[in-house]
Design a protein around this nucleic acid. Structure first.
Lengths: 388, 388
DNA sequence: TGACTATCTATGGACTCCACCATAAGTCGG
DNA sequence: CCGACTTATGGTGGAGTCCATAGATAGTCA
């Protein structure tokens, strides 16, 4: 429990924040009475608070609802369009940039394919192209952005430096915050892509509201991320969910083993997994064996995390989650002998944009700091001028 | 971030809580000016707040400090002696009860040895004897207690029921809260003993202030517990830290393997481990091999948790931690090949009372709810009358 | 048109925090 | 021993915030 307390102005701040939060989380606009009920304040105080917020431009008045008894009540909504944030996902094959409003709704996006063997400068250039595409599509400029978060493969430490990558030899040490800071003047956060995908699923996707979950990235790369106590668990050096590094789990080779299965029928590597899953769906014995072997190894690493954390939910994400109808039952069977209680397992719902959306969610966490100026008064919605 | 806000009375509550917290966490008594600096309030407001707290009996005035310039300032301290809590650790061989004041300082304790094969009623009877001994030693009666927490071996679920035990066949399903509630009328919490030991080390012991840590119980039984984000991680069904259930770690047999080592020289089982560690300390090759084998298995499970969570610290607790000078370097060596970064490893400092002290810490978490009556005004220190 | 309902607006009161100033109670130097 | 200095105390008044209450307002419904 965090005790804040303080000034009378601070009390007003807290009540303003409570009202903003209620409006943000509500499904539609709210009347004064509804707000009073949700915040626990009296009618009168709510009016004081919202007139302040209204004058500054944080909330907008909406047409009264038609029908109903009594005098029609004014309705207010949070002005999610008052600002925007940018989420970027830098993958091996692509860069994806997503711009959302303050409610996390996608406004525009830009996608740029990248050669898996592209060198660092080329990849960084692709980042700008994806960002510019998203900016153009939204009609915004870089100075309109309130916050940016970037997802990268590899281990990202507390300072935002990429410290360890398997797939991209020249990627470790890249200064993403510095690179983006050349043209963007808002706060920039760097985080691992699987962690951001987990965050997106917890905020917007299949794990909405779940406070303890394990996110599995099952694809040509394998990884995991954790949400614990409702918050992304970053770890001391950012190296969480790296249970696949234990040789006994077989995570290092399980994806290529699947692709090299005879059931892949010499399909190109990027299609092999899909072919195997399709064959398994049709009942092909070799494909079923390959999927079971993959699920067995995935379950070993997953069991280690489940036995450690006893989460409420496991989310199956990554490219292979498109074949969840085949993979998920196999994974559940493979987990059974290892776990005391097999947690609920659900496939990811957000698809390819997952990590970029998670990045936007992370960037939004800084928005709360925009509501008040340093002197304690309510400030007007505006993008930050300088880097924090 | 938890937004509270509310009434003016609520603001006073928050400021009172802040002052109480500052006084509790301070090393000695504080003057009004010092309190003003720590809480961020003005002198005047602090005086208002503490006169209220003083009148109700939550804080006491202390002799002014001798020496120093200017008019001597009144000094105040938190009245930790205003109430007491009880922590109980029910082990296989013993029951330990500890009574602490509101600052967590031990006031008295009671210890009762129990036959490892004792049946449930006998063990529950031993609990009362330990509790009564602690009560007598402190001069308190059961109605003076503000809260009780009990640590038990086995998995304890969210409702406080013991769901799974390996060592005691008739223990699962025992209703500890109900049993203690027959004679105690304060809130009663039940938790796993290793979790409580972890909590004690984080609050009072070697892990003071560390927010992410793994606690290892290394002894004749093997277990683990987690502190994540500064809070005890309970898990969905209470089954966290159960990584030893994976056969490949060897946790199930590693302790008996150590005791059956030739280096134990036919010592009785309860002494065997100590004999082996002593021999290893002297350089005996067979003992060193046995310790290395034990450390190897312990490291397998630990690595799974470390790779999952990337904690700041690993605390080595349990009976074997008395031989940390031998075991800890072996554990560190065995972890090296598995981890990206071997975290800091420190031996437990609280010894046998660890779990009981942790229980008292857990019971203390409910004390904050005693400061104010339901109507919002400051209440007088008093033990709760009825079960919550 | 009138009864009913729910909201809006205005007034006054209670409470909390804060700035300011005079006073009290020590120490230090002569 | 006495006065200057330092620091804490206590009292007063002002500003800000929340709340209760009462009357005015704007719809629906019969």
């Amino acid at each position: 429990m965090q005790v804040s307390g303080g000034d009378l102005q601070r009390l007003r701040q807290l009540n303003s924040l409570g009202s903003i939060r209620a409006l943000r989380e509500a499904s539609g606009p709210l009347t004064v009475s509804e707000l009073a009920a949700r915040t626990g304040l009296s009618r009168n105080s709510v009016i004081d608070v919202i007139t302040g917020l209204h004058e500054c431009g944080w909330i907008a008045e909406v047409e009264p609802a038609p029908g109903g008894m009594g005098r029609p009540a004014k309705r207010y909504r949070f002005r999610a369009d008052a600002g925007h944030v940018l989420g970027i996902d830098i993958g091996v094959h692509k860069v994806l940039a997503v711009i959302t409003d303050l409610a996390g709704r996608t406004v525009s996006s830009g996608r740029v394919a990248v050669d898996p063997h592209a060198a660092r400068p080329e990849r960084l250039e692709a980042v700008w192209r994806a960002v510019d595409a998203a900016l153009v599509a939204s009609g915004l400029s870089g100075t309109d952005l309130w916050g940016v978060a970037v997802g990268s493969i590899g281990v990202v430490n507390r300072e935002g430096t990429v410290t360890r990558v398997e797939s991209l030899p020249d990627w470790p040490g890249v200064d993403l915050a510095g690179h983006l800071g050349q043209r963007l003047s808002c706060p920039i956060t760097v985080e691992n892509d699987s962690k951001l995908a987990a965050l997106a699923e917890q905020r917007l996707g299949v794990a909405a509201g779940v406070s303890d979950l394990v996110y599995l990235h099952a694809g040509r790369r394998s990884g995991a991320a954790l949400i614990l106590g409702g918050r992304l668990h970053h770890g001391f050096g950012g190296a969480t969910g790296e249970v696949g590094l234990m040789e006994m789990t077989g995570w290092r080779t399980m994806a290529t083993d699947l692709e090299n299965s005879p059931a892949a029928r010499d399909a190109p590597p990027e299609d092999a997994a899909r072919v195997v899953f399709t064959a398994a769906r049709a009942g092909d014995p070799a494909a079923l064996a390959a999927v079971d072997a993959y699920a067995h190894h995935l379950a070993l690493g997953t069991a280690a995390m489940v036995l450690t954390l006893d989460p409420e939910l496991v989310v199956l994400g990554g490219g292979f989650s498109r074949s969840a109808d085949v993979l998920l039952p196999a994974l559940r069977r493979a987990l059974e002998p290892h776990c005391l209680r097999v947690p609920d397992i659900r496939p990811s719902t957000l698809g390819e944009e997952c990590a970029a959306l998670g990045a936007a969610c992370l960037a939004l966490t800084h928005v709360d700091e925009h509501f008040f100026s340093p002197d304690g008064s309510i400030s007007r919605p505006s993008a930050p001028r300088r880097l924090v």
